[in-house]
Nucleic acid binder design. Structure first.
Lengths: 195, 195, 195, 195
DNA sequence: GATGAATGAGCCTTCATTCAT
DNA sequence: GATGAATGAAGGCTCATTCAT
């Protein structure tokens, strides 16, 4: 299994750094190889082509995202609390890796439609976690019983994503994690949570 | 003023069509020129370079957006109502021009970071309209008095944008405008509006 | 029509020289462009890709071959005479253009199977001229009445081709045209011509 | 002597199969190694480089050719008969090994000039057998006394080679060996044999 | 003002060969 | 002797922009 060999992760981490520092269109394979400390050709022992590096990058990192999210919500018993820790977790993971934040919020969006469709497929698992929490909140009568789950999920993801992108565009000058309660307040209100 | 000459708009409209139908990376200057019915070189009599076409495109179309938005909110007296017509207006303008929807939601996001920063500057005027409505709502006690305007605006724009993008990615198969009340409900709730 | 523009022939002639002097695998597009005195990109205004240069080269030159061959046999009344002038013509055209001889006999054969199949299609017209002469010779009772035209044509083409290739491999050190009568004698004998 | 170790022949046979089935340019060393059931690096214990595999392949197979040819002409007493069994032998050996036929007639010709010069050196022994038979035929007055041996040999080899190549290009659809008498008739006639 | 032929910089990928184990 | 992971050089093609007409 190639994914477990050290160079696999080495190359992905190099790609994050190179893309963050040079931009998507200036992230040549040769630059990634150099950053990873391997020869250009070695990249192709672990990835089918350049696009494959980017998809794998997203899968690896988003995998951690989903895993971590599952962990943090496991200990919470109300949907409201779960949403809070999800937002905090989302903000924290990107705050802790500034390069990754730039890559996911700005650079990877420049990829072509095909790549973005594949990225969306990876995102789906994350969005399904949100859906599950929303449905739980409705059942527990925390949220409005007529809440439109799909639209609420789009609000939640849209709000979180827009918040992170704005923060990255402002060069990460302020404390993103500190915004979590405000964002949480806005979206749970949106979902009809009683105050 | 070049903007008033017929070929200026002709080229921008050609760009929207070409980008929507071929994708950002397949929208070569020569293709746009052909669609516009002019020679390649003529483009450069009206635009500094290719990036300038895209910024101008965004400015032109977003200008109409702001203008229309101002019109529709003019007749409304509550912030809540104003938000509703803004959402409806946003959804309607993109529903009416499928090419434009593809370009703004999918294709233009593939542009490089620089172009997107410029696009964000153009967006600012639109976001300031949202801010004004929010502040008005707070003053009129329609919304929570401690509402964080900046974050609320990010929620509103993020939610709207995510809704439109999802709709475009689903190939515009359902009625976007019909979603306006649901979205409105979610975000005014988020802003603490009493039911 | 691109074929009539001066740069079309200019590039083909450059390709013949570059391939002859550097070998097929060392004939980079950039080298051909330099030899032709145009930019690399200009090549692609006249040819679809590198393979297209080679096929066009063959078509152009073989077209002259067929044309010239038709001319020289037009004035002759016996099949035997026609074969003689065909051989002489074949030898003369390649003797007069040493670069072309190298390209057709050695370098172009290194092209991949696909290209060679296309080249064979171009050759067909030339081979059909041989067939016509052979059938005429049979009818005029110059050749054996039971002559197998297809095999005789393979003998004729194989013999001529082998003679030229050997001459090229020997660095064109001797007079190729002087061999025509000998070759002619061998193949007409082969076809059963009376002495 | 490496040539006697089992892996030597194993690799050569693998090369014939891989080249025939994939084409010269798709016959990577790693593919040959896999087909031979050895590691890539092992190839280099038996061959200097890739070109060396091909030359050795040709030497081995052509060695069998010459050997067999000597055998079949040993029992014949006239030059004419000898030529017939040589042609039959040539056709039979390639008919019996379709892979080898593809490799010698189509794929190996795509090798570069250098390799082909070396291949020609290997061929020389075979051609000298033809020369010997021709000189014998002249002495025995079977052929014209003024026969140009070199040109006659080129006719014979060119005709045989062209016949085989045409047969391979037609995907070996007809019986090649059945053509031997016709080819024999053509070339002995060409050499001035009395009927 | 309008044209469109010409330019040329820039990059992903392959694969023969090596060498530490 | 055998392995196979790692190397790194090399080239065809695209397309935004220019400029002579």
């Amino acid at each position: 299994m190639k994914k477990n060999k050290p160079k696999y992760k080495q190359i992905i981490d190099a790609a994050v750094i190179v893309i963050a520092e040079n931009g998507y269109h200036q992230a040549q394979v040769s630059k990634i190889a150099k950053q990873a400390g391997v020869a250009d050709g070695t990249i192709y022992l672990y990835f089918k082509n350049k696009e494959d590096i980017l998809i794998s990058l997203f899968e690896e990192k988003m995998g951690l995202f989903v895993e971590k999210t599952k962990e943090v919500i496991a200990g919470k018993h109300s949907a409201k609390e779960k949403l809070l820790v999800m937002i905090e977790n989302h903000f924290r993971l990107l705050s802790e890796d500034h390069h990754l934040a730039i890559v996911t919020q700005l650079e990877l969006r420049q990829s072509n439609k095909d790549l973005r469709l594949k990225i969306n497929a990876v995102l789906k698992e994350y969005l399904m976690l949100v859906d599950a929490v929303l449905r739980e909140g409705i059942e527990l009568k925390e949220f409005a019983e007529d809440l439109d789950v799909r639209m609420a999920r789009q609000m939640i993801f849209g709000t979180i994503d827009e918040s992170v992108t704005t923060w990255v565009m402002n060069e990460q000058k302020y404390d993103l994690i500190a915004l979590a309660p405000t964002v949480h307040h806005l979206i749970t209100n949106g979902c009809g949570a009683k105050l």
